[in-house]
Write a protein that binds this DNA or RNA. Structure first.
Lengths: 212, 212
DNA sequence: AATTGTGAACCTCTTCACAGCT
DNA sequence: AGCTGTGAAGAGGTTCACAATT
């Protein structure tokens, strides 16, 4: 069985959002060319990406918007609700508690942890903040699927280790540091500093990068 | 002159952060192997990345931490201050106004815009929020280098168009939608939904992805 | 002995191009 | 005629392996 590349998964996520938009607009059918145009890729790329999982289109006609959305949703596991825990209720953590794109796609932040006594016990955006001391116990009890780590860099590895002890298999890390996890645990990094520094690089070396 | 890949630039950004950390710890010298280990890549990859820009190490000895940090800083344009404008002072915008990783690396958010009358005129984290109506005029007057777009998806393309009119050449977009920019303008996307959906995919298809 | 810098080999992802279906 | 699905070709990024240096 073939492995699927990160790039393909990222694009599927984008196609999925485009299809939701199109469904909302009442568009019934879409071609690979059109879907590609909405996402800044080539039509061949769209077809290749989809062909990893089956044949969802009809030659000569294109893809049915509702069906393709439903199929990509199933492929990506977006046809169910995921239990999400948030670790670290700082600036970024608070923003994520109220982030539409998580909520609307089935990612429900049901638990939040912090070690600041001033925050523990408070309810923010409908989620009550718990004491980080109980992290392992609580993520196990709540059967958390995915943890979002938004603690300072120096604390991130230890929080992740404890999440793993609590049985969490998927982690989204916002701390600007590499984290080690055992086999079978998935970790993804979201580092906003990297992207803005990439812009700094582009402005500094316009001859070394291609703009759109 | 060779083009530099996004992956290389992203890794340089990571090496840079590692070197800052090492410098803080008083570490004088680092090998490609060590730098690689801190960032989850191979030693050959580190050397190849650096070799795009010159020969910074000494055979048999490794790299001087302070010198390499300084060199990467120059390459990435992190040895200067960038003027950053924020568009959209919602949950994410507010979090970014107080984001350490921006501030400490020379990205100074000096202007913020919103169209909500309740926000205009207020000062948040030391930045006063201006009326979005004056966007083009103000980014031009303030000589903004980089704009961060944190407005809803439906407003993002139009805000970007106006930023371009105002002369902004680099944009960091948080709206979950593809944005078109003219040649010579750099845009990077930060989409947290994509990464969490990638985790959803991994949990749903453990056989199709490799964990660490 | 340790470690860099780098051409060559390797591998992976993207694009091409066309047969096949509507 | 229009559009998908896909093997083959092409492009690009990563790893190997070793000469060069300390």
């Amino acid at each position: 069985m073939q492995r699927i590349s990160d790039s393909t998964v990222h694009r599927l996520s984008k196609y999925f959002r485009t299809l939701i938009y199109m469904q909302g607009k009442g568009i019934k059918t879409v071609s690979s060319k059109n879907l590609a145009h909405h996402n800044g890729v080539t039509a061949a790329q769209v077809r290749k990406d989809l062909s990893c999982f089956g044949a969802f289109g009809r030659r000569g006609l294109g893809y049915n918007v509702v069906d393709l959305r439903s199929n990509i949703g199933k492929i990506m596991g977006l046809d169910r609700a995921w239990k999400v825990a948030l670790c670290g209720v700082g600036n970024i953590g608070r923003a994520l508690l109220d982030y539409d794109q998580f909520r609307s796609q089935g990612f429900q932040i049901t638990v939040a942890f912090d070690k600041d006594p001033a925050k523990i016990g408070k309810t923010i955006h409908g989620v009550s903040v718990r004491n980080e001391i109980d992290l392992e116990r609580d993520v196990k009890a709540e059967k958390v699927d995915i943890a979002v780590v938004a603690v300072p860099a120096r604390a991130a590895q230890s929080i992740v280790d404890r999440l793993v002890v609590g049985g969490v298999k998927a982690i989204l890390n916002f701390a600007p540091i590499n984290i080690k996890v055992p086999p079978g645990v998935y970790i993804r990094h979201e580092n906003m500093a990297i992207e803005i520094e990439t812009l700094s690089f582009a402005l500094t070396n316009p001859d070394l990068v291609q703009s759109e």
